[in-house]
């Protein structure tokens, strides 16, 4: 029993860890609660992987900053009372260079009147991976859907730069930014076992990691987020057309019935 108590949390953390574990990045702390439920005012827990010595803070939708307090790289982030995306920031500078990590959790609260693009555009580091745009509210990064990002150095797009994409399911591939520093990719449909129903499939993680050397200084940056299973696994378009056609037939029946009544009256 004692062995289970100790080993289960470690096992859970290992299961949630994204493959590039040596990269400084944010990931959600394992939770026994159902993540799909609306627990609007509950705190959200995150782990900063490889985060020894990193400076961390939270940026609100209105760009206000709060320091983040951790317990051994485990962060329980309370809702700020402001609605919309927030930014979890981690930065560490050593003799080997600067490492940064960003993640954009969503918190519910009162509207702030600030667009999330203000938060993503706001310069947080010298070298940064910017989502273009973030998944819209009530939308999520979803398997089989395209996601776009821009790589910037000191606010300027970084062209022809390599970037690694990895998922917690083991998928890994490299991409290069175009002349405008942009890159787009289809989020892999790599759920090991797809169950019918969005709520029955736990979210999985993807991580973007890029590195560059500028003016003899090495920079590394990561962006992490979750993605959900493609609901089209259990949603049928052909049957949708059948239902649409059925509705049109009913419409025609109503139309002819009405026409006959009118003729009868005459």
């Amino acid at each position: 029993m004692m062995f289970l108590k100790i080993s289960l949390p470690i096992l859970l953390i290992c299961m949630w860890a994204a493959p590039a574990s040596a990269v400084l990045h944010w990931q959600p702390a394992p939770s026994s609660k159902d993540n799909m439920q609306h627990q609007r005012m509950a705190h959200k827990s995150f782990i900063l992987v490889d985060g020894q010595g990193a400076y961390t803070h939270l940026i609100h939708p209105d760009l206000k900053k709060d320091p983040l307090l951790d317990t051994e790289q485990h962060f329980a982030v309370k809702p700020t009372g402001k609605n919309n995306y927030h930014a979890l920031i981690a930065q560490r500078t050593t003799s080997q260079g600067t490492e940064t990590a960003v993640r954009y959790p969503y918190f519910h609260g009162r509207p702030t009147g600030f667009s999330p693009s203000k938060l993503t555009d706001h310069a947080k580091f010298d070298f940064e991976i910017i989502p273009m745009p973030l998944a819209r509210e009530h939308w999520k990064y979803t398997a089989n859907q395209e996601a776009s990002f821009q790589l910037r150095f000191k606010g300027k797009p970084l062209a022809k730069q390599s970037i690694q994409v990895t998922t917690s399911q083991g998928t890994a591939f490299d991409l290069k930014t175009d002349s405008k520093g942009m890159l787009s990719f289809i989020i892999p449909d790599d759920f090991s076992e797809v169950k019918v129903g969005q709520r029955k499939n736990p979210k999985i993680e993807f991580l973007l990691h890029a590195q560059t050397t500028q003016n003899n200084h090495h920079y590394q940056s990561s962006f992490s987020s979750f993605y959900v299973v493609d609901p089209n696994h259990w949603r049928s378009l052909p049957w949708g057309f059948v239902a649409l056609f059925f509705g049109m037939m009913i419409g025609l029946l109503i139309h002819f019935k009405y026409r006959n009544i009118k003729k009868g009256k005459r």
Binding site: V196, L237, G240, F245, G247, M249
Partner: peptide
Amino acid sequence: MDELRIDTSTPGYMVWSILADTLFGLILVI
């Protein structure tokens, strides 16, 4: 066209999506 799809995840969702597509087809003709 995703919103036209019939959701087969539960009988409830399936009934709602069939109703939605049927209603939309009905409106298109009427």
